[in-house]
């Protein structure tokens, strides 16, 4: 699913998002980087219509009416709301809403079992650790297999092994289903490992948007240059 954004404005007490034009390419993994408070999450939530925009237009495959495309979009929020039921029930809830029968649900879940050790499936999801909760939240949206997947720091609470498996999962979803994936991350290396395209945001604006290789080898914006230099030095 292609996303085209035009004149997007979001204000609270001050403007937190101000994007003139942005095209998120269909079938690609796009990473959104940026400092804290740069508007990454707000952008993601505006695309998912979780937050109302003050001005501007968002087109989903050329369609502006969100109601017509809402069932084609799934979002994993930074602090997902985990329902007070088993982890498995959390994961399959969306599939039940879609009317899938038990056999199809089991078949769908099986596809995702190779990525994680899912010993916790029958535990109450509210009792899970941060990493397990993140896995539930991610699987809950991944199993829906919708054309657009928005992920807000999906690996923030995960250990290294789970992080790598999550990245594999994201890549596989993108390749197998041609899913458009937009991922917000603070991890430059994760962006490097995962993304086809990279967006860098600062103060609500997109200050750099390029192919991954170009972004890391030849950035145009001074702030991005500075951050990448600092990251190289730390290596």
């Amino acid at each position: 699913m292609n996303i085209y954004i035009e004149g997007l404005l979001k204000r609270y007490e001050k403007t937190v998002l101000n994007i003139e034009k942005l095209n998120i390419e269909s079938g690609k993994v796009t990473a959104i980087l940026g400092l804290n408070g740069s508007g990454k999450t707000t952008l993601l939530e505006c695309i998912a219509n979780i937050k109302n925009k003050d001005e501007g237009k968002i087109y989903y495959d050329g369609i502006e009416d969100f109601e017509r495309v809402k069932n084609k979009i799934a979002i994993m929020q930074q602090r997902p709301y985990i329902l007070n039921m088993s982890a498995l029930d959390n994961i399959v809830l969306g599939l039940k809403y879609e009317g899938l029968d038990e056999k199809s649900i089991n078949k769908r879940i099986e596809k995702y079992k190779e990525y994680y050790n899912l010993d916790f499936l029958h535990k109450n999801a509210k009792k899970l650790s941060g990493g397990e909760t993140a896995k539930v939240a991610l699987l809950r949206v991944a199993v829906l297999e919708r054309p657009l997947l928005l992920l807000d720091e999906p690996t923030a609470n995960m250990d290294i092994e789970s992080t790598l498996m999550t990245e594999k999962l994201i890549k596989d979803i993108n390749k197998k289903n041609k899913t458009t994936i937009v991922i917000v991350t603070h991890d430059l290396f994760q962006a490097q490992r995962l993304a086809d395209l990279v967006i860098f945001m600062d103060k609500g604006k997109v200050i750099e948007y390029s192919l991954k290789d170009e972004f890391f080898s030849n950035p145009k914006n001074d702030l991005v240059k500075k951050i990448l230099r600092r990251s190289d030095k730390n290596d």
């Binding site: 998912a48 979780i50 069932n71 709301y81 329902l83 809830l93 969306g94 809403y97 879609e98 829906l144």
Partner: peptide
């Protein structure tokens, strides 16, 4: 949050 989670998952 419950409402948004439910609707996002395709609930009515």
């Amino acid at each position: 949050r419950i409402q948004k989670t439910c609707y996002m998952l395709g609930g009515r």
